[in-house]
Design a protein around this nucleic acid. Structure first.
Length: 273
DNA sequence: CCTTAATCCTGGAAGC
DNA sequence: TGCTTCCAGGATTAAG
């Protein structure tokens, strides 16, 4: 999402912002808080949280976006007018905030389930200090020793720990299962019992899985779309997620499914000890 | 500490 | 066809 937005947003000015459902916006809900009248300089991210940062020099206000389960940010070059054919279709439902941009395009935050939301800050530094401070190292750049340190402090199952955004930021249910499978680690292994070898392997597996998923444009189960509305393709490459009962691609045994930290967890009982 | 269940929501799929 | 139940990418909270 960040990559697709970073190609189109920087340099554009927000001419007007329309909030249809104010409850999804947290923090100052003023027009300036939502970047009205400001130019967008950068789109950055930590873990699963996105930041759209205004100028000048990326020192202006910023909006943090968390997509939750069903959230999307959709950029349209030729926005459809409300009231015109297609303007009230399914795609227009659950659009909570729309930014009207200086090139005639729009950016729409749509989130049917409303588990996501927007958080406004006066500056990126404030977002980082007040909100992102609670997040662990980003999964794409985390070092083995950082993950080792954070896992060493918990006896929780490694699967549960990987989903904890304060331990490592950016891993969700899909990528946790995929990375544990690649690592040949049982999801219930206590975090503090991972050996140095395990820790190196898991760190590498997390990054490798994420890089592959990024190259494939992400995973579209139902709702995920990039900013242009395109679907991801990584769902076609899942090794374990959503494959309960199917054959392990490594040993041929049937994949099993258990609940860990309340989340469905698929793994190979034979390959993952 | 740790786990589970409930909670916030909508809607697609499966079951009957 | 229609109705009910279950489940889903996330994250927090209370209860046990």
């Amino acid at each position: 999402m960040r990559r697709s937005l970073a190609e189109v947003l920087p340099g554009l000015t927000v001419e007007r912002v329309v909030v249809r459902r104010g409850s999804v916006v947290h923090g100052s809900r003023t027009r300036r808080g939502l970047l009205e009248g400001l130019s967008i300089d950068t789109v950055t991210r930590h873990g699963k949280q996105l930041a759209i940062v205004a100028g000048p020099s990326s020192a202006g206000p910023c909006v943090c976006v968390h997509l939750g389960m069903s959230g999307t940010l959709r950029y349209r070059d030729e926005p459809r007018e409300p009231g015109k054919p297609n303007g009230r279709g399914p795609a227009a439902k659950h659009v909570h905030v729309t930014w009207y941009l200086s090139n005639g395009a729009t950016l729409a935050f749509r989130d049917p389930r409303r588990f996501g939301g927007l958080w406004t800050f006066n500056a990126l530094a404030d977002l980082q200090q007040q909100r992102w401070r609670q997040l662990g190292p980003d999964a794409l750049v985390i070092r083995t020793r950082q993950l080792a340190k954070n896992l060493s402090r918990t006896r929780r199952p490694v699967k549960a720990a990987l989903l904890d955004q304060s331990i490592i930021a950016g891993i969700g249910n899909i990528y946790a299962d995929e990375a544990l499978y690649v690592s040949r680690l049982h999801p219930l292994t206590p975090g503090c019992e991972l050996t140095p070898d395990h820790l190196r392997i898991v760190t590498g597996a997390l990054k490798a899985v994420l890089r592959k998923a990024l190259r494939a444009g992400g995973s579209t189960l139902r709702d995920y779309r990039d900013a242009d509305g395109g679907e991801g393709r990584f769902q076609n490459a899942f090794q374990v997620y959503s494959r309960k009962g199917q054959d392990c691609l490594n040993c041929g045994d049937g994949l099993d499914s258990i609940l860990v930290a309340g989340r469905t967890t698929v793994y190979c009982p034979h390959c993952q000890r």
